[in-house]
């Protein structure tokens, strides 16, 4: 059982643009990812939106392995700026984990 927490999203949003809440979970991004990152972006983004911080932290490597190729972003029907969101998330993680 995880408590939903809106604060995480707020903090992430403070690091830059993050519009993952518009995602409708169609799965297009997962299908297109050349690295085959199955939980990026839609699952990790959702963890951020719902405030499931532990899940996000368990996937830090995935966040940093994304190529930022934008294959997903140009094809997202909900206009989620996926690659930009990944960047924002990296900034957030750098700040909180590595104090950069």
């Amino acid at each position: 059982m995880t408590r939903v927490n809106a604060e995480l999203l707020k903090t992430v949003e403070a690091s830059g643009e993050f519009n993952a809440v518009a995602c409708m979970n169609c799965g297009t991004c997962t299908a297109l990812c050349p690295l085959g990152l199955t939980n990026l972006p839609r699952e990790i983004f959702r963890d951020v939106v719902l405030g499931l911080e532990e899940k996000v932290l368990a996937n830090v490597e995935t966040v940093f392995s994304c190529l930022l190729c934008r294959m997903c972003q140009v094809n997202c029907p909900a206009e989620v700026k996926i690659a930009d969101n990944v960047r924002t998330l990296r900034v957030h993680l750098n700040k909180t984990l590595h104090h950069l």
């Binding site: 995880t2 408590r3 939903v4 839609r42 959702r46 963890d47 719902l50």
Partner: peptide, 16 residues
């Protein structure tokens, strides 16, 4: 409100 979210691996969520 407790709900199992099918969009996140059926995570059991609790919303206050």
């Amino acid at each position: 409100v407790k709900v199992k979210d099918t969009l996140t691996r059926r995570e059991e969520l609790e919303i206050a």
